[in-house]
Amino acid sequence: MSEEETDFPIRIRGLTNAFGDFVVHEDLDLDVRRGEILGVVGGSGTGKSVLMRSIIGLQPPVKGDIEVFGHNITQAEPDEVIGVRNRWGVLFQGGALFSTLSVGENVQVPLKQFYPELKQQLLDEISRYKVVLTGLPEDAAAKFPSELSGGMRKRAGLARALALDPELLFLDEPTAGLDPIGGAKFDQLTRELTDTLGLTVFLITHDLDTLYAICDRVAVLADKKVIAVGTIPELLEHDHPWIQEYFNGPRARAASATHERGKALDKHGSEKA
C-alpha cells in the first residue's frame, strides 16, 4: 500500500468527459482525502453525477486518469476493478434497490457476491443489524422496496451500500426529496457512520443544510472543472461569481444562520451539563 493511497482514496487528473460534441468536464482535477466527507456542489447540468459515474467506472472518460485506492480505474484489468469494488459502496439517487428482493435480501446481494463462504444465518444477522443501523424500523427488512416510502428507500439503499463495510461511500443527492426532518436525520446518520466506521464520503448534494452540517470540505463544479475545493469559510473568500451567488444567496444565509444557531445551542447545552 503506497503512501499516496493511504492519504487520497480518490485522485483525478486531467479528466475529460464528453457526450458527442457536448463536453461535460475538461481537464478536471480532484483529490479526496481519507476520512473526510467531501461535498460536491454545482449548478444543474455541471456534471456532478457524471463525475461520480466516472469514478465508479460506469462512464468511460474521453481522457484523463482516475485512481481509486491507487488503482487506475480507467485502464484497470477487470480483476483489479473487482478488488476495488468491494471497498466502496454506492447510493444512487433513487436508491436503485432490486425490486424483486426484500430490503434484507438486497443487503445480502453484495455479501453473497463477494464472500460466498458466509453462512446464511450470518448473512441474515448482518442484514438485520445493517438495516437497523441505517435507522430503519426492524420490520422494514422483510419488506419489498415498493412498499417503502422515498426516504425509507434511501435508507435501505444506504444499508446496501454499507453491506460490505466499505472504506469509501458515494452518495448521490441523499437528502433530495426528503422532508427537512428526515433530511437532517439522514445528515446526522451519515456523519455518525463516517465517524464510527471511518468512512470517506463523496457526497453530491444541492442541500445547503447538508453542506453546513456535515461536510468537511466542499468541491465546486463549474466551467467544466472543479473551480474550488475547501471548507465553507475558505470558499466564502473565493471571488468566482457562481460561488458568491451560491453561498451568499438568501437560502445559503438561512442555512448558515440555522447552523450557527445550532452550534450556539450545543455550546449552551454542554456548558449547562
Binding site: E105, Q108, D124, K130, V131, L133, A141, A142
Partner: peptide, 10 residues
C-alpha cells in the same frame, strides 16, 4: 442495532 426481525417476506 441488534434485531431479530424477519429478513425475507413470509
Amino acid at each position: 442495532a441488534e434485531s431479530d426481525a424477519e429478513v425475507s417476506p413470509y
